[in-house]
Amino acid sequence: MSQASLSTANVSLQVLPSVPPDDVYPVVDRVIEMIAASGVTYEVGPMETTMEGELDTLLDLVKKAQELCIEAGAGSVMSIVKIHYKPKGVTIHEKVGKYRG
């Protein structure tokens, strides 16, 4: 098993499905539901969803998100992916916890 698969990473994903404007949110909602069902820690933001877990698992979810958008009727999907990886791990809480009440 690679070191990357053992450490906690953060991956932020924004999907931009090529669908009629009224269908964008329903497609994005399906992606968020898939992420939620995966069991990884995640937070939905106004522009992207940030996930926390093993890097390999998170990258698999990114791939599944592309496929889900196409299955939902998108002709194509563009995604913006941000990855924060450290060998000893990184959490969402260590980045934003101090800003929460």
Rank of each mutant, 00 (worst) to 15 (best):
G97P: 08
K63I: 13
C69F: 10
T8V: 10
S7L: 09
A4E: 12
G97I: 07
A74R: 02
I92E: 01
D29E: 09
V27P: 09
K63Y: 07
E43N: 07
K98W: 01
P20H: 11
S76N: 12
G97N: 05
S5Q: 11
G101V: 15
A9G: 13
Y25K: 15
G89T: 11
G101M: 04
K88Y: 12
E48Y: 01
E43G: 02
L61H: 05
I32M: 03
V96Q: 09
E67R: 13
C69W: 05
A9K: 09
M51E: 06
E67L: 15
G39M: 00
E54K: 01
E94N: 05
I35P: 11
A65D: 08
E71D: 15
P21Y: 08
K98P: 06
I92P: 07
A9E: 03
S38A: 14
Y42T: 01
M78I: 07
Y25F: 14
M51N: 06
E52N: 01
K95F: 01
V19E: 11
S5P: 02
V28H: 12
G73D: 11
E33G: 13
V28P: 13
D60R: 14
M34K: 06
G101E: 14
G45K: 05
K88L: 13
E43R: 00
V27S: 06
E33M: 04
M47I: 08
V96W: 09
Q3V: 08
S2W: 01
A72G: 12
V15H: 00
L16Y: 06
E94C: 04
K95N: 07
K98C: 02
Q14Y: 01
A36R: 05
Y25T: 15
V96P: 07
V28C: 14
G75K: 14
V31G: 07
G53K: 00
R100W: 04
T50Q: 00
E94T: 09
K95C: 03
A4G: 13
G101N: 08
V27G: 15
H84L: 02
E43W: 00
A9T: 08
V40P: 07
